[in-house]
Amino acid sequence: MNSIESIGENIRILRLKNGFSQEQLALCAGVNTSYIGQIERGEKNPTIKILEQISAALEITLVDLLTLYDLQTKKSTPKGTLPLPNPYSPGTYSTNSDSLH
């Protein structure tokens, strides 16, 4: 999946999560309904201005729109990266209190 398709998938996931139809999102974002569908399918390459309008309609930041939304963890993760382990979780790192002084 290329970046245009990923952005379209993110829009579709967030639209459905918010309970919007394509028509409702298009109306809120000030774009044509068919254009939303084309973006979601990765057929169109939207401008930053259009992505800003869509992100505002979804009530998220443009950065959040451009990151991969993981429905399983309910967290945004940049595409191509893995979540890092929590360094504060027990057993993740061993610490020696003497080395801190």
Rank of each mutant, 00 (worst) to 15 (best):
residue 1 M to H: 10
residue 2 N to D: 15
residue 4 I to F: 15
residue 4 I to T: 15
residue 5 E to D: 14
residue 5 E to R: 13
residue 6 S to D: 05
residue 7 I to E: 03
residue 8 G to E: 02
residue 8 G to F: 05
residue 9 E to T: 11
residue 10 N to Q: 13
residue 10 N to L: 15
residue 10 N to M: 13
residue 11 I to C: 04
residue 11 I to R: 00
residue 12 R to E: 10
residue 12 R to K: 14
residue 13 I to N: 10
residue 13 I to W: 10
residue 13 I to M: 11
residue 13 I to D: 07
residue 13 I to E: 11
residue 14 L to T: 02
residue 14 L to Y: 02
residue 14 L to F: 05
residue 15 R to Y: 06
residue 15 R to C: 08
residue 15 R to P: 03
residue 16 L to M: 15
residue 17 K to A: 08
residue 18 N to T: 11
residue 18 N to D: 14
residue 19 G to F: 04
residue 19 G to D: 02
residue 20 F to G: 10
residue 21 S to D: 12
residue 22 Q to A: 11
residue 22 Q to R: 04
residue 24 Q to S: 15
residue 25 L to H: 00
residue 25 L to E: 01
residue 25 L to F: 00
residue 27 L to K: 07
residue 27 L to Q: 07
residue 28 C to H: 08
residue 28 C to I: 09
residue 29 A to F: 02
residue 29 A to P: 00
residue 31 V to Q: 09
residue 31 V to S: 11
residue 33 T to S: 07
residue 33 T to M: 08
residue 34 S to W: 00
residue 35 Y to P: 14
residue 35 Y to H: 12
residue 37 G to H: 00
residue 40 E to W: 01
residue 40 E to T: 00
residue 41 R to V: 03
residue 42 G to Y: 01
residue 42 G to A: 01
residue 43 E to Q: 09
residue 45 N to A: 08
residue 45 N to T: 07
residue 45 N to Y: 06
residue 49 K to Q: 15
residue 49 K to E: 15
residue 49 K to C: 15
residue 49 K to F: 12
residue 50 I to H: 05
residue 50 I to F: 05
residue 51 L to E: 07
residue 52 E to C: 05
residue 52 E to G: 04
residue 53 Q to H: 06
residue 53 Q to C: 09
residue 54 I to R: 02
residue 54 I to K: 02
residue 55 S to A: 10
residue 56 A to T: 06
residue 56 A to K: 06
residue 56 A to G: 06
residue 56 A to W: 04
residue 57 A to D: 01
residue 58 L to E: 08
residue 59 E to F: 03
residue 59 E to K: 03
residue 60 I to V: 01
residue 60 I to F: 03
residue 61 T to G: 09
residue 61 T to S: 09
residue 61 T to V: 00
residue 63 V to Y: 08
residue 63 V to A: 09
residue 64 D to N: 11
residue 64 D to E: 13
residue 66 L to W: 02
residue 67 T to V: 06
residue 68 L to P: 06
residue 68 L to N: 14
residue 68 L to V: 13
residue 69 Y to D: 05
residue 69 Y to P: 01
residue 69 Y to K: 14
residue 69 Y to Q: 10
residue 70 D to A: 12
residue 70 D to I: 09
residue 70 D to P: 01
residue 70 D to C: 09
residue 70 D to M: 14
residue 71 L to H: 10
residue 71 L to W: 15
residue 73 T to D: 07
residue 73 T to K: 07
residue 74 K to A: 15
residue 75 K to S: 07
residue 75 K to N: 06
residue 77 T to W: 10
residue 77 T to Q: 09
residue 78 P to G: 07
residue 78 P to D: 14
residue 79 K to G: 11
residue 80 G to H: 02
residue 82 L to W: 06
residue 84 L to S: 11
residue 85 P to R: 12
residue 86 N to Y: 07
residue 87 P to D: 01
residue 88 Y to K: 05
residue 88 Y to Q: 03
residue 88 Y to H: 01
residue 88 Y to G: 00
residue 91 G to W: 03
residue 91 G to R: 04
residue 93 Y to M: 12
residue 93 Y to Q: 04
residue 94 S to C: 01
residue 94 S to D: 04
residue 95 T to F: 05
residue 95 T to Y: 04
residue 96 N to R: 08
residue 97 S to I: 13
residue 97 S to E: 12
residue 97 S to Q: 06
residue 97 S to V: 08
residue 97 S to N: 12
residue 98 D to P: 02
residue 98 D to H: 12
residue 99 S to P: 09
residue 99 S to Q: 14
residue 100 L to C: 13
residue 101 H to E: 08
